[in-house]
Each structure stands twice: as C-alpha cells, then as structure tokens.
Amino acid sequence: MTLESMYEYLPQLLKGLQTTLELTFASLFTGLILALLFTLVLSLRFKPLEWLVKLQILLFTGTPLLVQIFLIYYGPAQFPILQETALWSLLSEPWFCAMLALALNSAAYSTQLFKGAIDAVSAGEWEAAMALGMTRQQALTRIILPHAIRRALPAYGNEMILVMKGTSLASTITLMDLMGYAARLNAQTYDTLTVFSLAGVIYLTLTGILTLVVRFIERKALAFSN
C-alpha cells in the first residue's frame, strides 16, 4: 500500500462517484415520495390500499436488499410478455432496477419511521385541529405530518446513509458505481487492501458530508423544540 498507487487509483475510483451519487439521490427522492404517500394511506386508513402498503413493508423490510436488486433486475426477463411492453426499456436498465430496489426498500423503512413519528404526536394536537373545524385529512397533511417529519429527521438521516451505502450493491448487476470501479481495479491489480481501503475512505467522506448536512437541516427544522 504505497502513496503512489493511491494517487494512481483515486481518479479511477472517482469515475464511479457520479453514479453512486445519482443513484443515492434518485432513490432517496423516489423513496421519500413513496414513503409520504404510504404514510398517508396508513394514517387515513384507506382500506384496500392499507393492506398493500403493509404487504410492501413486510416484503421489503423482511428480505435482503441484494435479493430485491436481483429479483427486480433478473426477474422480469423470465416473462417474455413484459419484454414487449414500454416498461421493458426501463426494466432492462441496471441503473433503473437498482434505483427502484433502493427506493422501494427505503420507502418501506421510511414509512415505518414516519408512521411511528405520527403516532407519537400527542392526541391533543389532533384534537385542537379538529376543534378548529379541520377535517382529519387537513389536520394530517397541514399539521401532524409536518410536525412528525421534523421529529423523524434524525432517524431519517440514518436512513439516507444506509441508502448511500446500499448503492454499493448495484455493482453486482453490472453497474459501474464507486464499488464497481473498485472491483474492476482490484481484478486488474490484485492490490486489494489499497483499493478497498480507498473506496472505504471515499464512502466515509460521503457519510461525513451527509451527516453534517442533515445536522444543519435538523438545527433549522427542530429549532422549535429548544
């Protein structure tokens, strides 16, 4: 493990950085939108949908992310019928499949997080909203959810980091992210210790930056609780 080799490997690994970041933010964004919808469905008890969301949570929190990525990427190819639909252009794309798996996985965990935070908001806050003539739906979307999300922010920060690290599994379906380049470099040089240490340091740096950003947002969003 020499300094020269590190200098040599670093630019090669950083070629994957963009894919890692794109994958992280695209799946977090999609996952967040889904999680908010799922949370509304659970909180307002939309009957048939409620069961679907619960099933989704059961499946995606109950199985490994790697299994989910494999199933979403390799699964549809088993159904020739799918290959004729417009969806196929997306489902045959490893980037899209990895993003979808990460997003669905993150949505399942985030929904649990948000629902828990909503249940922790005191009944009095609901009652105050109802007593002012708001409907349950208005109370939820205008008051309870905004409060709950602020409370859930520290835990959601961890979820963001988990998704970022989870993107490394996308390299198993041919995606050339940070981990993809690290694996290729390792195969070329057999300099395993240097290559993966370097990859680890890059992930650690990303985690650090993300943590700082979340802390900053937390300070703003939770200013009311001091």
């Binding site: 005191s122 009095g124 806050e125 009652e127 105050a128 909203a129 109802m130 007593a131 002012l132 003539g133 708001m134 409907t135 008051i143 905004p146 409060h147 602020r150 009311f224 609780s225």
Partner: peptide
C-alpha cells in the same frame, strides 16, 4: 361536526398548541 366547530371554539387544559409552528 366540521361546520359546527367553525362556530364553536375550544380551549383545552393542556393548551394543545402546535409546537412546530
């Protein structure tokens, strides 16, 4: 009930203000 509550205000023992606003 929604229509009624717009004409009937209520004040609670624990105030029930929304703390994040």
């Amino acid at each position: 009930a929604c229509a009624l509550r717009r004409k009937v205000g209520m004040v609670f023992q624990q105030y029930n203000l929304w703390p994040h606003m």
